[in-house]
Structure formats: C-alpha cells, structure tokens
Simulated assay, not measured.
Amino acid sequence: MFDNLAQYGVEFLTIAGIHLLAVASPGPDFAVVLKHSVSFGRRAAILTSIGVGLAILLHVAYSLLGIGILIQNTPGMFQILSYAAAAYLLYIGWGALNSKPRQPSDLNVAQLSKQTISDKKAFWTGFLTNGLNPKATLFFLSVFAVVVSAQTPNSIKLLYGIYLALATGLWFCALSYCLSSTRVREFLSSKGYWFDRVMGAVLILLAIKLALPE
C-alpha cells in the first residue's frame, strides 16, 4: 500500500490545501477553542482541540461507509442534523452571552485559573461542536466525492482522513497554546465578560445560520 502512495501525491496535496483554507476560517470550532483558551486555560483548550480533531474521524468514517451520501440525499435527515447542531451552539452561546463582569481582583491569571471545566466536558464540547456541524459534513462529502477519485482505495482514503484529523487537532492545539499564554489571557480577560458575550453572540449567529434554510 505504501509503495503506491506517490501516485496519490497530487490528490493528497489538493486535499491538504483545501483543508488548510477550511480549518483556518473562523467557525464554531474556532469560537469554542478561543473561548476555552481564555476562560479556562491551556489544558482545557487543548483537550477541546483534541475533541475537534477526533471528530474529524467521525466524518471520515461515514464518508467511507457511504452514510454521508444518504444524509446528503435525505433532506429531512440533514435538517435534523442542522437543528441538533444549532441547538447545541445556542446552548453554549447563551451561557457565554450571560457572562457576568469579574471583580478587579479576579483579573490576574492566578484567579482566572480557578475557573475550571472538567477534562471530559472540554473534550466533548470540542467533539460535539465539530461532529454535529453540518458544514463539516458537506466539506467531507465534497472532498470525498469531488477531489478523491472513485478508484482511490479505501485504505488511502483512510490515510487522508487520519491526516485531516491530525492536522485539525494540531492546528487548534497550536492556537490554544498561543491564546492561553499569560499575556494574551490577561489582555483578553481584562474585559472578559464582554469577550464572552461577543463569542456567545457569534455562536448564536452561527446557530441561526445553521437552522435557517439556505
């Protein structure tokens, strides 16, 4: 299998280029990782990023199994997925939108670090945010239907998927590392409740966009 990888080089580079543009574009994943970086710190943000990356494998799995085509061609099923994603983003966004001002004594990093979220919740927030996103569904359907040749073996497609999951996770982990640095957290958290409210509004707008028909 590995001896034949060279012939899929152009296909892989095309996928990698498209993915780079997609993952760098602001969306629900970016908003959630950004919020966790500032509100809960580096560990929570990295676990959220790992959840986002592993959710990519979910999209890869149903694309390889052909379930993605079923979702795409069944408007009711796709609409249900859109509503589920919108409801989840609304839930997260509403909580952020109701963020309260912090006391001046709470604005240092030591105090900010006392705000906690469990590892499990941080991970599942990232996983569900990406896994329920119908835009991610459409992205993978497009990639596997248009860019990837029908003659490409499933083993090679799986390698593509593993790369996409790793690249996504590493991108958001790097973002988490930068955003959760002491100086950045202190700067963003000086007006933390406004930051939370803006992120909440963004998530709610994304939810509305998902729920409304194109």
Rank of each mutant, 00 (worst) to 15 (best):
S49W: 04
Q111C: 13
L65A: 05
G161I: 05
T116R: 11
G27E: 04
L206K: 02
R185L: 03
V52I: 15
L141G: 08
A55W: 06
T129D: 00
W194K: 13
G68Y: 01
D3Q: 15
L20K: 01
C178H: 11
S142Q: 04
F123C: 11
W94T: 13
S190A: 15
N130R: 03
V148C: 00
P26M: 06
A61Y: 08
A6R: 10
R183S: 15
G131Q: 07
G41I: 02
A44M: 03
Q151M: 14
A84C: 15
K191T: 11
L164G: 09
L47A: 11
L170K: 02
A86F: 08
L166K: 03
L138V: 14
I46E: 00
S155A: 10
T116Y: 06
A45Y: 00
F139T: 02
T129E: 06
G41T: 01
L188N: 13
V143I: 13
L97N: 01
M1I: 02
N130Y: 03
V60Y: 01
I156S: 10
G27M: 01
Q103S: 14
L132P: 00
V10W: 13
Q103W: 14
F2G: 11
A87R: 07
G17C: 05
A61C: 12
G76C: 05
P104T: 07
L5S: 13
L212M: 14
F2R: 12
D3G: 13
L81T: 09
T182V: 12
L205C: 13
L107P: 09
A122E: 03
G53C: 00
S39V: 09
S82K: 12
S181Q: 12
I208P: 06
L132K: 08
V184M: 14
A201K: 15
L170F: 10
Y177R: 00
N73F: 13
A31R: 04
A167Q: 00
M199R: 04
G41E: 06
E214V: 05
F78G: 01
L212V: 12
G53V: 09
M1R: 12
Q7I: 13
V38T: 11
L175N: 02
I117P: 05
M199G: 07
P26T: 06
L47T: 05
F144W: 08
A24S: 15
D3E: 15
V198R: 07
N4M: 12
I156D: 04
L166C: 05
R43T: 10
A16H: 02
N154C: 00
K135L: 13
G95M: 12
